[in-house]
Each structure stands twice: as C-alpha cells, then as structure tokens.
Write a protein that binds this DNA or RNA. Sequence first.
DNA 1: CCGACAACCTGTGAGC
DNA 2: TGCTCACAGGTTGTCG
Length: 277
Amino acid sequence: MPELPEVETTCRGLAPAIEQRLIRRAVVRHRGLRQPVPRGLERRLAGLRVTALSRRGKYLLFNCSRDDSAAGSLIVHLGMSGRLWLVDAATPPEKHDHFDLEFDNGLIVRLRDPRRFGLVLWQSGDALQHPLLATIGPEPLTADFDGRVLHGATRKRSAAIKLVLMDSHVVAGVGNIYANEALFRAGIDPRIAAQRISLARCGALAAAVKQTLELAINAGGSTLRDYVGSDGRAGYFQNQFLVYGRAGEPCTRCGTTVRELRQAQRATCYCPQCQRR
DNA sequence: CCGACAACCTGTGAGC
DNA sequence: TGCTCACAGGTTGTCG
C-alpha cells in the first residue's frame, strides 16, 4: 500500500483529529511486526499528549510530551500492507488490527497490517536520532534534494539507477511505483548504471521525483487493492500511472508498447522509446 | 564501501 | 471447486 504520498496523506488525515490530544491508552494485540513492538510501550504512552504528527520518509512520527515537557516519539512504519485509520471506540478490532492508540476524544488510531512488515517503535527525545531514521537520505520534497545532491550520491554506484533511487539512504521514501513513474517522466532507462547519469539528467530526475510525488499527494495517494486513506476515502493517483502496471499497453506519450522486466525481484515498467540510456 | 540475495509475513489471482 | 505458484506498495541483515 504505502509509499511516501500515501504516508503523507495519512499524516494529513490524522493530524487534525489527534494533535494536542491526550492518549488515553494504547493496545498492542500482536507484537510480531518487522521488529517486536517494544515491551511496556502501552504503559509508556498512556497519559502522553501528541503535540505534533509528522512524516520523515515513510515513517510517521507522533511527537509526544508529558506536562509540557518533551517525552519522545512514537514511530510507525506501514511496511507493505499497513494502514492507519481513525475509528470510534465502539469499532471492534479485526484479524489484522495489531495496534490501537486511543485518545481522550474517543477516537482510536488503529493499525491494520496483514503482512506485518510494519513497525511500531519508541524513541526518547528526538525521533530523528532513532537508528532507522538517523541514516536515511534527504527528504525528496525539500530543497535538501536536488540534481546536485542526487549526482553526488550516485558517483560510485554502478547499480541500476532505479535500484539506487529506491535506496532510502540516497533519497527517503521513493518506492517501486514512484521510482518507475519518475524515471519515465525524466526519460531515463531504469537499467543504466547510476554513476553514468550526467548532472543535467540527475537534475531532470530529481525534478521528476518531486513532481510525481506532489501530483500523487494532491490526488490523495494511490489506491491499490483495498487501500483507502485515513478518512476512508480512496486516493486516485493510480488512475494517473504512466507506466506502472501498464506493461503491454501503449505509452501515453509515444504509443510504443510499455515493457516490463524485473530488477531485484521487483517489477520495472518502462517505455523503450521514451526512456533512453 | 558496494552489490546480490534471502528474509520477514499474509492475501490474492492466475493457471491447471 | 480447490490446489499450487508467483507476486504484491518495504526494508534490513548477511555474505562475498
């Protein structure tokens, strides 16, 4: 389900309902996520106030304080199949509902994650000091990421540009769908060695990453399978995919048949005419 | 440092 | 209808 636009959509959907609210209690029904949910997290969270909800890459950060002094952050990652939504206290949890955060207004932020590749973690103090967050690359939608940064980060990388673009240490939050889409928009063959791409083309690619992510956020994210946003509404960016999932169909730009191949066991879709070496 | 690959899980759809 | 297999939005750890 979730790449950066979906996480951003979730963040924007949840924030107004929970910011400045007190956590009444937290419930963990299944600790076996990608990493175990920390022991004692429920006791730690009870009575804290969520002062801000933010996003770093694909991580959601619930900044928490107690009596006006910063306590730390609840860190949530949705993995492949995770989703957070708001439910009222009367809504019974279902099979894959592993975690609840219940607030003093009666609303519950509920994590559903069938594949359990997600994460629920705690970091005292500054969330960005958590080992999983401290080493990730620049935020793609800020000035911290541009063609020069991308060019610099790829000079020693002989791997295919698509794989390098999906490396969260190069740039945060670019997953399979948006890597495919951005490479198409930049007119770059996904198989080229990253280090062979010129500064100018890195500029085009960085711009394409930003454009693709922004368009997707404005569309409310992408709805694949059963994903819907935190308000229960579906995003519709999947209707705007230019190459992803379109193998065998004509390229929207030139009409050439879109091709599919596999890179690191992931589907790559591209137009052999529009995307060049 | 880098790249290739397996691993963590469940659900779904295609093909037989 | 039911079985088996491949594949799905992510990321880390291990090994060479």
